[in-house]
Amino acid sequence: MTYPLYVPPEQIIKDRADFARRGARRGLPALALSTADGVLLAARNPSRALRKISEIYDKVGFAAVGKWSEFEALRVAGIRYADLRGYSYDRVDVTARGLAGAYAQTIAAAFTSDPKPLEVEVAVAQVGETQMDDAVFHITFDGAVSDELPWAVLGGAPAGAHETMTEGWRPGLTLPEAGELARAALGALGGGETAFEAAVLTRGAVGRSFVRLAAIP
């Protein structure tokens, strides 16, 4: 008689977390940070076609790292979520908070019950009327959400980047200053000189605020 192999639940979760973390952090990093002029989204990305940063709605933007196919599906789902909400109610009713919740549920459900957890890390950012109203939500591979910081660093080896951001970020940073900080944080992770991808959610814009930039300002 054979017995099914017993694996403690702690071990199952730990194995899945290790697997997902490795996958999500294998790629080049991305970040979102609040500045005086709007919310800056930046990523190291040698590809011109496969984007890590995207517009979601008027004031809401998206940045992600990990498996492209997986966060691309999340990105499109986010646009659909936002457009459906804005069409059913009103454009002002679409918020980063709502979308972050939906992403957290989706990623957490995949983490616990799908054959394979999603190997992604996502930031959902919203530009407000003032810098106090900005929001940056950071969602990790297990569906955990955090919004304590006015910035989020995704993927890579965030230790060096976190320190750079903690030391360098202050309220009232202008866009060029924030660009310099972003470059330092993303560059601190190493990986050679690769192209950057950047966009800004412009503060005070009427309607759609997402503007793609040719380079980090």
């Binding site: 599906a73 979520y81 457009d83 459906l84 059913s88 992403y103 995949a110």
Partner: peptide
């Protein structure tokens, strides 16, 4: 625990097609 419904992850780039599948009452 559930997340976004399956229709949100279907391929396609048309909002109207998406509405037809996900929320025909809104359309």
């Amino acid at each position: 625990m559930t997340g976004l419904p399956r229709e949100f992850f279907a391929p396609g780039n048309s909002f109207i097609d998406f509405l037809r599948a996900q929320a025909p009452d809104v359309l």
